[in-house]
Simulated scan of single mutants.
Amino acid sequence: MIERIETGIAPSSAPVNDAIKAGKQVWLVAIAEDPASGEIVSGGIAEQTRRTIQNLQIAVEAAGGSLANIVQVQVFLTDSADAKGMNAVYADFFKQPFPVRATVVVKELLAEGLKVEMLATAVLD
């Protein structure tokens, strides 16, 4: 059984979900979008990474878990020079054992000014 998790972040006008649950697994996606305004947060990679992970946190908590339940993260960056700044913020949120992670540099992301996007998988207790 597949269940859409309502987080209040993904735009209802687009054919997307930011969290889907199937059994004890939850698939999540997050960008640096302010949930209140729907706008991409201003600032550099640190601010965008922080908001992105906070959005992952909102989504996984809506599914009944926490960041500690995340076992895998895929990070998409638009600039390889941002990896160090992203890692610094990432380490503030994720602790040992860290989720398995892949980081990929892409030409661009869908929203203008967006520097980072994350896909994650969580396994609930």
Rank of each mutant, 00 (worst) to 15 (best):
A32N: 13
D92C: 08
V100A: 15
G85L: 13
L109V: 14
P35Q: 13
A63P: 09
K84Q: 13
V29M: 09
R51N: 11
A63F: 03
E33N: 10
A36R: 12
F98C: 03
L67P: 06
Q72A: 14
A46T: 12
E39R: 11
A81M: 05
L77K: 08
Y90D: 02
A81C: 05
Q72H: 04
A59S: 14
Q74C: 13
V104G: 01
F98T: 08
E112I: 09
A63I: 02
E47P: 06
S80V: 03
A102G: 07
V89H: 08
N55P: 03
A91Y: 01
A63R: 07
T49I: 07
N87G: 08
A36I: 05
L110K: 13
K84Y: 10
A81S: 14
T103E: 04
A111E: 15
Q74S: 15
S66K: 13
G38A: 11
F93S: 00
Q96E: 15
I31R: 13
S42L: 06
E33C: 15
K107E: 14
E33H: 01
S80F: 02
V26C: 03
G65D: 03
K24Q: 12
I70T: 08
G44L: 12
L56W: 03
T103I: 07
N87D: 11
A59Y: 00
F94L: 09
A102V: 10
K24W: 06
Q72G: 09
I31T: 13
V75K: 05
V75R: 07
V106F: 01
Q96D: 12
K107R: 14
Q57F: 04
A30F: 02
